[in-house]
Simulated assay, not measured.
Amino acid sequence: MEMTLIHNERTKLTGNYLNGIAIAIFAVGTFNPLVASIGAEGPGIATAITSVICFLASLALHLASRRILKGLMS
C-alpha cells in the first residue's frame, strides 16, 4: 500500500513538473510575443512561426503530462 502511495506521488510530481514547463513555454513563447505585437503592425513571420512552434511544444508537453498521470495506481 505504501509503495503505491509513493509511486502515485512521484507520478503526480512528474506530471505537474512537465505541465509547468508547458505553461511556461506557452506564456513566454506564444502568449507574450503575440500580445506584444498587438500595438505594432502585427506579428512578423518569425514571431508567428516561433509562436506556433512554442504552442506545439507546449501542447506536446501537456499531453505527455496527461499520459504520465494515466499511470497512477489505485
Rank of each mutant, 00 (worst) to 15 (best):
23 I>H: 01
3 M>R: 13
56 L>V: 05
17 Y>K: 03
12 K>E: 10
54 C>M: 08
23 I>Y: 04
18 L>Q: 08
71 G>P: 01
3 M>W: 14
58 S>F: 06
36 A>K: 07
8 N>H: 00
19 N>R: 13
53 I>Q: 02
19 N>Q: 09
22 A>R: 02
60 A>Y: 09
71 G>Y: 00
20 G>R: 01
11 T>N: 06
17 Y>I: 04
59 L>C: 03
28 V>E: 13
68 I>C: 06
46 A>I: 11
28 V>Q: 07
44 G>C: 06
38 I>L: 15
63 L>P: 03
21 I>E: 13
23 I>K: 04
56 L>A: 05
63 L>S: 09
61 L>E: 05
48 A>R: 09
10 R>D: 03
9 E>D: 09
32 N>Y: 12
72 L>D: 03
14 T>H: 08
56 L>H: 01
63 L>N: 13
64 A>N: 13
38 I>C: 00
25 I>Q: 01
50 T>K: 13
65 S>C: 07
49 I>N: 10
40 A>T: 14
23 I>G: 01
41 E>F: 12
57 A>Y: 04
18 L>T: 02
44 G>F: 03
62 H>L: 14
31 F>L: 13
5 L>V: 11
69 L>F: 00
39 G>M: 07
12 K>R: 14
67 R>Y: 12
40 A>V: 12
52 V>W: 11
43 P>I: 08
74 S>I: 12
67 R>M: 07
56 L>C: 04
8 N>A: 01
61 L>H: 05
37 S>I: 02
38 I>E: 08
44 G>P: 01
8 N>T: 00
27 A>D: 08
31 F>W: 07
30 T>V: 00
47 T>N: 05
32 N>P: 00
33 P>A: 04
53 I>E: 02
65 S>D: 08
54 C>N: 11
33 P>L: 04
42 G>S: 03
58 S>N: 04
38 I>G: 01
37 S>A: 14
52 V>S: 14
74 S>Q: 15
44 G>W: 03
1 M>D: 14
43 P>R: 03
46 A>P: 00
19 N>W: 08
70 K>P: 01
2 E>N: 06
56 L>E: 07
60 A>W: 10
2 E>Y: 04
